[in-house]
Each structure stands twice: as C-alpha cells, then as structure tokens.
Write a protein that binds this DNA or RNA. Structure first.
Lengths: 223, 223
DNA sequence: GCAAATATAATAGTAATACTTTCAATTATG
DNA sequence: CATAATTGAAAGTATTACTATTATATTTGC
C-alpha cells in the first residue's frame, strides 16, 4: 500500500471527490464491478445504490450523471497508465526503447498487480475497452471537452507522441499513430472476443501487442 | 439512376424490407438526416414519425428497434462501399495498386456523387463514423452477431484482407490491419473535429488518408 | 369491380430510466 | 456541544423504447 500515491482525475468529472469519503470510494469500486458485468447501458445509479446499500440521490451528490462517472473512471485509468508509464520508462535511455515499452504498456492486457487499488484494474481496462468511446462519440463532446474532462487522455497521448518526435522530429503523424494504436488495440481486443472475423487471433500468443509493435516500428523505420 | 442496382442488407436487420414501400424508403432517408443532425442518442422513432408524418407504430413494423435501424444503415453503408470498391478495382491488375486504392476508398471522405441514392452518402458516412461502433460495443453483440447482422462489414474486411494476402501470403495480420485502418480513420475524423490534440490535422491536406496509406505501405514493405 | 388481405394511422398505455426535490436523520468538525 | 455537512428515504417528473388495440386506407387476387 502506498497511501501517499493518488491518481488525480480532472475535477470537472465529479461534483465531490470520491476519494474524500468511504461512500465515494464504494461508488467507484462498485460501479467498476457493475459496469463490467452489466455493460454501461444496463448499469444505472438505482442498481448501484441498491448494491452498496445507499440511496440513488447520494450517488448524484458525487457524480452529476452516469456519463460523468464514466468520464471519471476513464480519466482515472489514463492517470494510472501515465503513472505506470513513468515507472516503466525509469532509467531507460534510448528513445526507441522507451517508445516500444510505451506501446507495449498501452496495448497489453493489464494485470491485477495494483499496489494501492481497492478495485480491479482488469475490470477497469475492460470498461475502457468496451465503453470509453461512448464518452466522446456523442453530441455533448465539445461542451464537455471545454471543461477538460478528456485532458488525462490527451496528456498521455501527448507524452508518447513526444517520444516519437525524439526519435524522428520530422515525423508528421505522432498523435495519429499513438491514438490509432491505443484505440485500435482496444477494438481488436473486443473483436477477438466477439467478432473474430475482423481480427487475427491466436490462443497462445498476444498477436495484438505484437501487431502494433511491428506497425509502429515499421512506421518509424526502427530496428 | 440505376434502378436495377440495389444494395442488399442482411435481412435480420429489418422486419420488412424498407425498399419495398414508399414509407420504408422515407424511414431510411429521413432517419439518416435525423441521426446525423441529432445524434443516435437524441434520435427516436417518435421524432422520426412526426417528421415524416407517420406513426411511431408504423416504423416499428419495419425495424424492431432503434439499434436494428442503425444496423441496417451501417450494413447498407458497407454494401455500398463494397460496390464502390468493385468499380474502383475494375481493370486494376497489380495487387499493390488494388490495395492502395482500397485503403484510399475506405479512409477518404465520401462525396455525394451517388448514382441512385435518395439519401446523402456524406451524412451516412458521418453516421458510420460517429455511431456505428455503438452497434457492437454492447452486451447484445454476440446474440445479434449470431443472426449475421455484422456480415456486410465482415465481408468487406475479408475482401481487402484477401488483397493483402495476395501481396504477401505470409502476412500474419491482414484482418487486423484492415479493421485498424477502417476504424482508425473514422476515429481520426472524429478527433479532428472534436478532440484535435489526439490527432494531427491540417486544413489544406487530407493527412488522415495519407497517414493510413503510408502506414499500410510500410507494414507490407511496399513501394 | 369487389371481397379479402395487408398496410398504415391514431391513440393510449407500460415499464424503465435518468434524473430532481424535499425533508428528516445522522455524522463530522471546530 | 452546536453547527454544518453528509446521507437516507421517499416521492415525483419527463422522456424513452416499445406494445397493444382498433379503425381506416390501400392493395391484390379473382
């Protein structure tokens, strides 16, 4: 346990910081379980309230809407990824190595090796894979974007893009490459499970990570 | 007008073929306009009925649900794309040329040069970009997939993957590459409009198509 | 040209959802 | 210990996604 480490999520995703109380933490932990199991559409605050033995109205005092809760969870995930990235790149000098390690982290299945989490990282990753795009694929995106609710994601993409520019400062598509890899690998994980004809799966190997690493290397003429 | 050409969409997306009546065609044409303008979430059959001067219940005789209508529209789009692909590849011999032409078609902004459409292709493409993933990012996907409602999309991905295998029969990720390019280019279009820090945009050039063509060429060591 | 089948309109209704409001009870804080 | 802040309980609202019913058109088969 490292109680002094805390993932900071953009404040406009929540009314009241869920870290500040037991109820808030329970809302977050239990909503991750429930969204993973029911899916975002079938999940609601009434069911969540019932599960944690609390009232619907109390949940609304932490999150103004179901979509803000989703934004909080995804923001938390990207913050957590950024922290993991920091650790994985510590003492790695070569920009090419740093990039490949980053791509690996961003495309791999997360393990539940969390040092301070009361919640399952694996579940949260499944939520990000299956649900996170619903947070920006709507007509409210511009409005919400003004309030910075996507900033955690953008910052992470920016950091990896910077490594690309270190390798080749003339490369024209650093952000496109990174967001293509992140979102692409999520989609491929979903396809592998549900629409396998859209991907190329293998029981024994993680071809998804292998594919994106190869793609990035070739895009940048590495190795 | 080529009245003898008709895009066939998987029959499990609709109860009654909307091509078979004037009302059916009006449902399709008007729903495209309205989903494009309101977004999938704010669109519903009551509003659609009002717009076309018809009753909600009548629409339900063509489509059993809002999500089936979305599946019909996207299925139609992929069928239409397959037809366009057929034309664009006619008389082109070289597999590499065929592939690049395919990638171009799949990543470009569609023009309204339709020869038989009563509806806007551009609008439909915007719907596919912003809404189509909602059709499979849910807990119902396996159920619906059983009934073949995604077959039009899979078939198209399969065809382009076959071109890749013609170029290099040992390439391990043909489907992954194609679905990454299609879905990736859609996402980048969305990001360019709403979350530009996640992409690399330029007012004057179509960098999205350029990026994916370069990506594919490098992935397969072309040119 | 007319009966029978089919398609559509009109209307009302249902269960669920995404919140909101109010007020009382509880708990934390200074 | 008093005051403020938090939570619970309960009821209520507007909307949505869809169903059911019945009446009226429209098409089709003969």
């Amino acid at each position: 346990m490292l109680p002094n480490i805390n993932i900071q999520v953009n404040a406009n995703t929540h009314i009241k910081d869920p870290n500040s109380s037991e109820l808030g933490q329970k809302i977050v932990a239990t909503s991750i379980e429930m969204i993973d199991e029911l899916g975002y559409e079938h999940f609601n605050f009434r069911k969540l309230g019932k599960q944690i033995g609390s009232s619907e109205a109390s949940i609304y005092r932490y999150f103004e809407s179901k979509s803000k809760l989703l934004l909080y969870l995804t923001g938390w995930y990207w913050g957590w990824m950024e922290y993991k990235l920091l650790i994985r790149l510590t003492n790695i000098e070569s920009p090419a190595d740093r990039l490949i390690r980053s791509i690996k982290l961003l495309t791999e299945i997360t393990e539940d090796d969390s040092i301070f989490l009361h919640v399952s990282e694996k579940r949260l990753q499944r939520i990000v894979i299956a649900e996170s795009s619903k947070a920006y694929l709507n007509k409210e995106v511009d409005n919400e974007n003004q309030f910075g609710v996507f900033s955690d994601y953008k910052r992470l993409v920016g950091k990896v893009s910077d490594i690309i520019l270190e390798i080749n400062k003339n490369y024209r598509y650093p952000h496109m490459l990174v967001s293509t890899v992140i979102e692409g690998s999520h989609l491929q994980r979903h396809f592998a499970k549900h629409l396998p004809r859209l991907t190329d799966v293998d029981q024994n190997e993680d071809l998804i990570t292998a594919f994106y690493i190869e793609l990035v290397k070739k895009a940048l003429n590495l190795k």
